[in-house]
Write a protein that binds this DNA or RNA. Structure first.
Lengths: 231, 231
DNA sequence: CACCGGGTTCAGCAGACTCTCAGGAAACTC
DNA sequence: GAGTTTCCTGAGAGTCTGCTGAACCCGGTG
């Protein structure tokens, strides 16, 4: 199917390292992965930033002057802040790892590491700590679709849909803003190649518009001669 | 990872590797760290064991004959089982790590690794995942299920259920809010792969609804063409 | 051996869902 | 503005799904 269309608000990651070139590199890699990234270059600023903006994950270098990463982690935990922490360090002595985990760290990467691996670990950690995000929700304006729960709301109102109706609106929603041809729709929603008979799509769009009510009906736009869109 | 002398009930870890000497070594190290450990030596047994005894963490070797670790992880996730997984492997190619994390793994250790580090990572993972499932009790609205005691209440009323009925309602309850397909239900409740015959699920849902009484029957919703949910 | 509780299969029924068709509305072309 | 194309929507037939009662099987127990 199609490209991972992440429709949720992206997760916020704080990257802390005293080498600015490194924070920049990590930050841009994570941004490329779809995260909202901020950076700090020392322990005190990191502490302040964590308290103020409570990111979803902190990537924390151990070896920093003044306040090192372990100390930062220890302090935020002492303050009852439970944000997941991934330690970065050049040391790979087991003693350090022990300290890192004991201090309340969640993961530990030794330099040099691959940026992709960091991304994967951030993702895995988020999957564990942000339980909400696993039921994959899509929203477009007033419309909200929860794939896991198989539920659809328009505003406050829950809309009861048949399986085919659900697949159709879901397909349009994850491709919101892009016009989908009837052929594409049929291929996704009906899962097979159809022979030129696209009347069925029109029928189901009609069903959806009716169920969405007068306000919601406008959500699904017809692009004559091309297909349908949700904007 | 020592010697935390705690009074809490120890966590249960399942260790899976096709080399028995390795499972034994890991198992004894983890036991020393205060965990209750069981082992399996191949993918199929691992699957069965996970479904039956639902451990708190699974340490899973990737490279096994027949059913490899990735596949085991993929299948349990597909069946709606959310148990944390740490992969073990000799490979350290980034491709493998990507596969591991994408399959729903939580951590990834490459051999050779230190047993202490494994212990630390198990501990870190438990720290993240246990608070959510703190006791063996699940509640959804009026419904309360105590897994340990094997008891179910609806409101004040205790409901007497057969073992299969219990596994079914428990599975739906721990996945509350998410629609579970009949295939997922059969895989979890009946512990084997079934071919197309899902009538049994309907029968048991029917039993449950009857036992839950007129008010409770609404708890288990049918999502036609998709599966069942408890919300 | 009869009984009992639990597991499984099956068939009939009701209702939900899918899909086709056709008349009419709307949009586009020239 | 006439003609053409595309789309909308109501109606209905037929299919599929899920619910439930009943029957059967099996192992354990009195």
């Amino acid at each position: 199917m199609l490209a991972d269309v992440t429709t949720e608000p992206s997760h916020r990651v704080l990257v802390v390292d005293d080498e600015e070139s490194l924070t920049d590199m990590i930050a841009s890699a994570l941004r490329f992965g779809g995260y909202e990234v901020s950076t700090e270059n020392n322990g005190y600023d990191a502490l302040r930033s964590i308290k103020r903006s409570s990111p979803d994950v902190v990537v924390l270098d151990v070896n920093m002057p003044e306040l090192d990463g372990f100390e930062v982690c220890k302090r935020i935990r002492r303050d009852g802040i439970n944000t997941p922490v991934i330690f970065l360090t050049a040391r790979h002595a087991i003693d350090d790892k022990r300290t890192g985990f004991r201090q309340g760290g969640d993961d530990y990467l030794t330099k040099p590491f691959s940026l992709e691996e960091l991304g994967l670990r951030v993702e895995a950690l988020l999957r564990r700590t942000q339980p909400e995000s696993d039921s994959s929700r899509v929203s477009v304006g007033e419309l909200t679709i929860d794939e896991g729960a198989h539920q659809v709301w328009f505003g406050e109102q829950e809309i009861d849909l048949s399986p085919t109706e659900f697949r159709l609106i879901h397909f349009l929603a994850i491709n919101r803003g892009r016009v989908m041809s009837k052929a594409q729709i049929v291929a996704y929603v009906w899962e097979y190649d159809y022979d030129g008979e696209y009347g069925i799509v029109e029928t189901y769009v009609s069903y959806l518009r009716r169920k969405l009510g007068p306000a919601g009906a406008k959500l699904i736009e017809t692009v004559r001669g091309v297909g349908y869109v949700i904007r």
